[in-house]
Design a protein around this nucleic acid. Structure first.
Length: 377
RNA sequence: GGAGGGGUACCCAAGUGGCCAAAGGGAGCAGACUGUAAAUCUGCCGGCGUAAGCCUUCGGAGGUUCAAAUCCUCCCCCCUCCA
């Protein structure tokens, strides 16, 4: 099995269950990839991650370039050795920072000039540079440099942005051809919130020899229905035999929705960030562990969960740790939220293999959508 | 006994005639977070009321004033120094 090979073993409707091979081993799909921007999934050790069954994590090109520097990481043996993580790593290109740090950058057709969020110094990112950085980091899956456009971008702006992203995708391929090493390179379809531009972007990106294709630019503040509409429109435009990656999404329900449309890979900061902010995902829905109601609750966080946190501690203790700002709170909460996400993916894979994915989809809709509707009424 | 400083909302603390139901913090309560500038941010936080508004609060009691947390008198309590 060579890196880049993708085998789909089962399908259930549009949902697929598969396996993607990388230089650091296989990834079972559908997969959720915890985000470890700065070569660390915040508050967790690699052991914590393997313990809950993480098979791949993310790193970020922009952040690691700035600190500690890709040259240094390369000298120290690459990202895997540097961070003692032996399993696959996907590095995002910095395309998201074009969006999230829009106040600190200038975009030209040639590339992006960032003013460092750390010290204000100027840094020039081109597709070629971003490839060079990711090659030196040694990630298993590299992402092309793209422009993640905001929800407010109009058609004309988004049209030009699609052209830019396509041009950059070609340049990334040129800088790092598919057969040049064991690192995979994924293309990214953009097109904002205009179906015709999504189509155009897919038509331009998907013929290129990438190992997989991502849908970018979603969950940037748009209403959920719009996100789902664009997703439903875009995923079928991606080649069926290659992995499909929905970038930056999402909630547990988003993941299941995505899988139902044929998405294979997801990443999102939500489970880790929310864990640090007290919002925890359980089989009974989303709970805020800070709430008064858990003050004396001696039950497990989620009785249906078998993670270390749920096996060992009570809600009352977790609330206490959070309230007292104890560092352990961040780790225990993060372990749980990621365990929940990874278990959800495991169940999705099993359900697809068993042909019962629709049941799981309905169950998750009931847990999260139901709770949301109740709250809104 | 003498000299000085101080008592403000659950806590700390600003305010020294009207713009004060009273700055800031903290605590408390609730919410947000989607390819991480995030262990961050937002809202509420005397009582009643949906609101306009009304009522009760700045140690206590009196007083001055159109108006007092703020000025005056007396009293109570706390802290520091001196004897």
């Amino acid at each position: 099995m060579h890196p880049g090979q993708f085998q789909i073993t089962h399908t259930d409707g549009q949902a697929r269950r598969g396996e993607l091979f990388t230089a650091h081993g296989p990834i079972q799909t559908p997969a959720f990839m915890p985000v470890g921007t700065q070569a660390s999934v915040k508050s967790l050790s690699p052991h914590d991650l393997t313990d809950i069954g993480a098979e791949i994590i993310l790193g970020n090109t922009y952040h690691l370039y700035l600190r500690p520097g890709h040259e240094l990481v390369a000298r120290l043996g690459g990202l895997h050795t540097f961070s003692s993580w032996d399993l696959p790593i996907l590095t995002d290109s910095g395309g998201y920072q074009v969006f999230s740090l829009s106040a600190l950058r200038k975009l030209t057709s040639e590339g992006v000039e960032f003013r460092s969020h750390i010290d204000g110094s100027k840094h020039w990112f081109t597709p070629e540079k971003v490839m060079d950085i990711q090659v030196k980091l040694g990630s298993d899956i590299m992402m092309v440099l793209d422009e993640c456009v905001s929800y407010t971008a109009d058609w004309n702006y988004t049209r030009d942005s699609v052209s830019l992203t396509t041009d950059w995708a070609r340049r990334c391929l040129q800088a790092s051809p598919p057969d040049s090493g064991s690192q995979l390179l994924f293309g990214i379809v953009q097109g904002g919130f205009f179906s015709d531009l999504r189509t155009r972007s897919a038509e331009e990106i998907t013929p290129l020899p990438f190992s997989g294709f991502a849908v970018g630019g979603l969950s940037v503040g748009e209403p959920k229905e719009i996100m789902l509409d664009i997703l439903a429109h875009t995923v079928p435009l991606l080649p069926g035999h290659k992995p499909r990656y929905l970038m930056g999404v999402g909630t547990p329900l988003d993941l299941v929705d995505g899988i139902s449309h044929g998405v294979d890979m997801f990443d999102c900061v939500l489970p880790t960030r929310n864990a640090r902010n007290g919002t925890l995902y359980t089989s009974q829905g989303k709970i805020n562990i800070k709430r008064q109601e858990f003050r004396a609750d001696d039950t497990a966080l989620d009785p249906a969960c078998s993670c270390y946190t749920c096996r060992t501690f009570s809600r009352a203790y977790l609330r206490h740790l959070y309230t007292a700002r104890e560092l352990l709170a961040y780790r225990l909460n993060t372990i749980h939220n990621l365990a929940y996400y990874l278990e959800l993916m495991r169940r999705a894979r099993q359900a697809i293999a068993a042909g019962t994915f629709a049941d799981l989809h309905r169950e998750i809709q009931g847990v999260f959508k139901g709770a949301q509707d109740l709250k809104e009424e």
